[in-house]
Design a binder for these strands. Structure first.
Lengths: 225, 225, 225, 225
DNA sequence: AATGAATGAGCGTTCATTCAT
DNA sequence: AATGAATGAACGCTCATTCAT
């Protein structure tokens, strides 16, 4: 069996796991079901992945890869535009991404909780859905570590560019600008999903209009000194 | 046993459950430990609550009660101020609340996911931490339904007041303003927690300054036409 | 449920485990079967015992208790006889004991392997049938530690007595005498069992005559300077 | 592939299995690890051996071969000495052998348990580490049967010789003498191992002195009418 | 009301064995 | 002969829930 075929099977398992984990929740998800959905035996799952946690980390790794590649595509397609436009384009891209692949978004947020938990050794407030011990042993967890700063640094790079080229006149620190914009997106995605996504309009707010409005605010934040 | 004693015991269980559920995560939490922490037997838990899910719903109900009462206190304490000030005060109150009682915040968000899931029968994107079947049978779940719109309507009321009294000059629909401000708060709380709360400053952003900055933005959103 | 009833149930489980563990071998034994044989649910086994290993240690503890009490009974029944007679009586008692309860004998030998393994940290030559980690956590393992020297010291005490009263004229160190006699018994029990116990006479050796002959040798060892 | 190469590979597997089985115990040993240690694929193990049990039987067969050849070498090297000297020399050889290759000793004892179990159909007292069904189907198990009496008959032959030539004056049946001496050796090896082998001196008994003492007893047993 | 012993379905994981190549 | 991916039965253990008292 070639490396390619092997990677394909790995991806098949990951795809099955994505469906199962995020439709039933990680804890309610059963490896048996993942295997069935992937058309493989349960045992084979453990040939490709160390544990259930490892599988979730594999999904998360894929999420990071996707995000990074999306950002890079966006940035290279508007290589000669202003920093502000780049930041807004990335925001736009992430918003679309997280709506299309909501579970990748959740996986990433979950990963952030884990990292934080492992940084502070305290257990207080630990609401993560993973068993830390097993997770830390996951090879995919280790792999993520090497790339998990990339998305942030791409955005912060764009912000700095915007400050340089004058398109961003906000005088807060780039990091401050970053977390502010990110808070808006995260909040939007969470509330939007809680409200039922694009299809329903709870509170009588049209998601598209709302999103447009939020980007208007983001633009204002970036443009105003 | 009097009603009072009974309510006290109920509250003792809920308090114990809060601690356990949110320090270990709902799935890792054990009823045994809740009972021990409450100083009661495991069996008695099931006299007061139908199930583990019911217990979480009881916590969520309490969370809603607290939020509502907090809002009402805030509103009555600044009864004669402008609508904008009321909205900002409520935002401020919620921010403090969610930082102090992070698990109430999480419980409410979790509840929102459940509601959405039960509205749409589709399972896609379901990431809730609860087994839907058991949850729907929870009496507390039913109780929450009767009050879950209250917080929203209090804020929207304040927004409308602000529009009336001229303190809020934003011409978007009150609902739009509401979800926008709420997205910012939710995103802030989530990111802030992911960054390690008040104690650490990942990305070199000071949480207090960041919060102040966000409220500045919120003020601007409300004030600008 | 009283303490007595609880202890009875514990003993019922231990008895069931004895049967299953030693008829199929520890590894082939299934907790399910132990539960069935005890007439209880599988879960209850884990209410009374921490793990499968703990259960084996409980059996071993019982084995030690039995041995010690057997020795004490023997010794008190021949309180005024010579040391040599005491030693021989104990040997006789152990031989009967290990033939009647062969699994107790095996359990004790197994325990000795474990102790040795935990003394030396080296893994070389480790043929024990237990997972060291789990075993060390077993409360019964800890309990055994407090009594595991008792049988040896009772015998060595009797040997010293015999040396004092002149019935034992062997001038080797008491410990040397002890291990020598014990080697004979252990070898006898092992070979006897391997030959099929009392019922068959492989090699055309009658077990009773053989045993008598071995005791004659033991007597000689003790009596001869 | 020639027969030679094939036998070499078989031996490589057996050697690997010896290491793994006896360092981790048969049940904790994994075929995967055996394969890795032998430098072969897991699948190939099953080309050479029917099952894990078969592999253990192969080791046991090798153990018997070694014993027999050791005995024969010893006997031919002292062809013209007395029967007693031959018996003692064999005992000496076995003692050395079992200390050097403890696992061969264990394998042989294990085999004896199996034989006994298969003779009696009763399961009582069965403490073997093997699944009887699979073992009986092992070709190596069948092979052992054809030679398993050889070591015994060699020793008994020497005993008879000693009786003839007058060096052995013990008037017990040769078989009785055989099992007696063997019990001493088996007990010695077992206790010695339980005490931690040659390196430590539990009970303050020096293994070498003890062994010398035991051979003195053996000599006495053989020499005394 | 209260206890805590008892239940049993459920799950992640392991690993000897098989089989397509 | 040889590989190693694939299988699937098996098992120890957990824990929400129930129930006899």
């Amino acid at each position: 069996m070639g490396v390619l075929e092997r990677q394909e099977k790995e991806q098949a398992i990951i795809r099955a796991a994505e469906e199962v984990f995020f439709s039933k929740g990680f804890y309610n998800a059963k490896m048996e079901e993942v295997a069935a959905k992937a058309g493989l035996s349960k045992g084979l799952l453990y040939f490709y992945f160390n544990s259930k946690d490892d599988l979730l980390m594999a999904i998360t790794y894929k999420a990071f890869e996707r995000i990074i590649s999306t950002y890079q595509k966006v940035l290279s397609s508007i290589q000669y535009k202003t920093g502000k436009e780049k930041v807004l384009a990335i925001m736009q891209a992430y918003t679309e991404f997280s709506q299309k692949y909501f579970y990748y978004h959740e996986a990433i947020l979950n990963y952030m909780s884990i990292v934080r938990l492992s940084l502070e050794q305290e257990k207080k407030g630990a609401t993560g859905i993973l068993n830390m011990e097993t997770t830390k042993q996951s090879p995919y967890y280790q792999k993520i570590k090497s790339i998990h700063n990339k998305p942030v640094s791409l955005v912060i790079g764009a912000i700095k560019e915007g400050v340089q080229d004058g398109s961003i006149r906000n005088r807060q620190k780039p990091q401050m600008i970053y977390v502010t914009l990110w808070a808006i997106i995260i909040g939007y995605v969470k509330l939007n999903i809680s409200m039922g996504g694009q299809d329903t309009t709870i509170y009588h707010v049209n998601p598209d209009k709302w999103q447009a409005y939020l980007f208007q605010i983001a633009d204002h934040i970036l443009s105003t000194p």
